[in-house]
Design a protein around this nucleic acid. Structure first.
Lengths: 153, 153
DNA sequence: GTTAATCATATTGTGTGCAATTGAATTGCT
DNA sequence: AGCAATTCAATTGCACACAATATGATTAAC
């Protein structure tokens, strides 16, 4: 029977709320840029992974590998990937070697889209006026928090 | 024609992704506790605001006031509040003075629920092993980021 | 004192997130 | 080989988020 500390329930004291609010605010800040690209925010994250994969990895990513990278499951990814396929940005192909897997690849248009992102994101970063070293410290802090939470399973 | 800086598109460099991933991870960490309370995470945040309001404010909050506090709009809040009303945790009453407004108040059960949260959250905080000063620094950093983004409109 | 503009909430539609289940394919064990 | 356990994707159902629109109420302009 250990003594539990008393805990604040004030909204402004909640790290969880700040995280939730800041995450949605950042997504909103990306909206004008993403509208120009015709992507939603999660679709943009998927494209980031596929661009990165396309540049360095020797084999195509599966839905599972993508999900591990983004911490999303097939219930979220399957319909999202179908929309990206409808937009002709990606291709989905059932693996011949293991028919349970679906391999993902970029179309020409999907590859080309990357070139349009760079200047838009640079402009967004400039306009936001966010201090780079401050943002970096925040990113590292979030990384540490994420690892701790994932350690709890 | 200003020169735009070159920007990384690597997923791990993106503050936005760390924020998005950490926010969802924290929500998952709250899930066992919230399941015991019969609440979803956004519903829990609404209850935090109503408990706080109930304790100090002289008048009942409206949907609008709640939305300003949580940065959510009526499209999200209206159905969520109806579910909380179905759970008999809150009451919704159209204002007599201004029929555009809906005033929110806690039921007896809604007030009583607060007492069950305190120990559950203390236990969660203990088990998480998150360093308090670290969490506090993170919270302040997020606060600053949130203010900067909101300043962009 | 109408009329126009504004305001607060509700509704609709699209796109996530995520738990739970399904179903097909593969692997492991014997 | 045969069968149970596991794996991967898809599906289903529910609850957000949020843009866009609608509706009714209030305020402001004239």
């Amino acid at each position: 029977m250990t003594d539990l500390p008393s805990v604040s329930l004030a909204l402004d004291d909640q790290l969880c709320f700040k995280l939730y609010a800041a995450s949605r605010a950042v997504t909103r800040a990306y909206k004008p840029m993403l509208d120009q690209l015709g992507l939603t925010y999660p679709q943009y994250l998927v494209m980031l992974v596929l661009w990165e994969w396309h540049a360095c990895a020797p084999h195509l990513p599966t839905v599972k590998a993508l999900g591990e990278r983004l911490l999303l499951d097939s219930g979220t990814l399957t319909p999202l990937l179908k929309r990206l396929e409808q937009l002709a940005l990606i291709k989905r192909r059932r693996s011949a070697a293991d028919e349970r897997e679906v391999h993902l690849s970029l179309s020409e248009a999907g590859q080309a889209l990357r070139d349009r992102v760079q200047p838009l994101k640079a402009r967004l970063l400039c306009d936001s006026g966010v201090d780079l070293s401050h943002a970096d410290a925040l990113r590292q802090g979030l990384d540490q928090l994420l690892r701790q939470i994932r350690a709890l399973l």
